[in-house]
Design a protein around this nucleic acid. Structure first.
Length: 335
DNA sequence: AATACGTGGCG
DNA sequence: TCGCCAAGTAT
């Protein structure tokens, strides 16, 4: 690998390609049309700004996993203000990351981001790996995030495949309403085949396809009248056929997962932990509004779930096993 | 390969 | 109201 530094500049529409062995004109047109749309319509997100850092991009990508942009924005801002460099986060207890994570959901992501910061600090001299292979080795970084960071932080040519891009490809090229329930090898090959050869163009293509999926080619009620590539869309050409399967909902009500979430809220609210006995039936029953330390509302929420003691026990055991909670002397706290 | 894992807004 | 959905990962 060439150990050169890749300048971090704003993701912008690329210059015209130097035509060598060029792809079919159709694909080139598609690339150009989407790039033009992206240059015009892309949201002004802080992790896309010219002053962004690779660390900031990684933080954004982890936070954005299964989580809407609007919810991530304020947490990302505060996170970067407090921990501008991986070593800043690595110097803190993991619990601080979990608390700062707030209500973004999937708090194990905060734990893994903290662990990733430790690996970056300890094994990479505080600098992020610049290619997918190195990024993949970091906790919490899978195929999508590795490709996204390689592309958006380092300007690399990587095949980025997220839920937006899968949906855009399924419609635009595949002629289907929705992609398969899980990522297939055929989809990955298709995404690789669609990627511009030119490195800078590939970055824009990846970002633009994601943005199109987020703003226009949405899962429900796509805004096809605003779509810059509607004329090329196989799904529109096919008469907008309906999905061939019905997505199965994510179970939530009454699940252990819901109880985990409520217990996590209690732990986040308690600066110095809570007695394990607080989660017992008798203690929960009397807690009501004895909210001297701010845990009251969170405890009330937990109580409202009316989970049985065995379910609370099971949920707590899961949190302890995952390292999201620790217990010492009968007191539960963040790690 | 299927499943577990949070949260809150929207149609 | 309620199910769907949001820049997935790890096991």
């Amino acid at each position: 690998m060439t150990p050169r530094k890749v300048p971090v500049t704003a993701i912008a529409a690329p210059r015209r390609r130097a035509s060598a062995a060029s792809p079919p004109a159709r694909l080139t047109d598609l690339h150009a049309a989407l790039a033009a749309w992206f240059a015009r319509e892309a949201r002004d997100l802080p992790w896309r700004a010219a002053d962004r850092t690779p660390w900031g991009v990684l933080v954004s990508e982890i936070m954005l996993q299964q989580t809407p942009v609007v919810r991530v924005l304020p947490v990302w801002e505060e996170w970067m203000r407090r921990w501008p460099h991986p070593s800043d986060l690595a110097a803190e207890p993991a619990g601080e990351a979990v608390r700062a994570w707030g209500r973004l959901g999937y708090p194990r992501r905060a734990l893994r981001l903290h662990a990733a910061a430790a690996v970056i600090t300890r094994e990479h001299d505080g600098e992020l790996p610049t290619i997918e292979e190195g990024l993949l080795a970091l906790p919490g970084v899978g195929t999508y995030t590795a490709a996204a960071v390689a592309a958006f932080a380092f300007g690399g040519r990587a095949t980025v495949v997220d839920t937006n891009i899968r949906r855009v490809h399924a419609r635009l090229v595949g002629g289907e309403a929705l992609p398969a329930p899980s990522l297939t090898a055929a989809e990955q090959r298709r995404a690789a085949a669609l990627l511009p050869e030119d490195r800078a163009e590939s970055v824009v293509w990846n970002a633009a396809a994601m943005e199109l999926g987020a703003l226009v080619c949405t899962a429900r009620s796509p805004r096809c009248s605003e779509c810059p590539v509607a004329a090329d869309c196989a799904w529109l050409a096919a008469g907008e056929p309906p999905p061939t399967y019905t997505p199965r909902g994510q179970a939530w009500h009454g699940t252990d997962r819901q109880v985990r979430g409520a217990i996590m809220a209690v732990l986040r609210a308690a600066e110095h932990g809570v007695p394990r006995a607080l989660l017992d039936d008798s203690a929960l029953a009397t807690v009501s509004d004895s909210a001297a330390d701010g845990v009251g509302p969170a405890v009330a929420r937990l109580k409202a779930l009316q989970a049985g003691p065995e379910q609370r026990e099971r949920a707590l055991a899961g949190l302890l096993a995952d390292g999201l909670a620790v217990e010492a002397d009968g007191v539960l706290r963040l790690p």
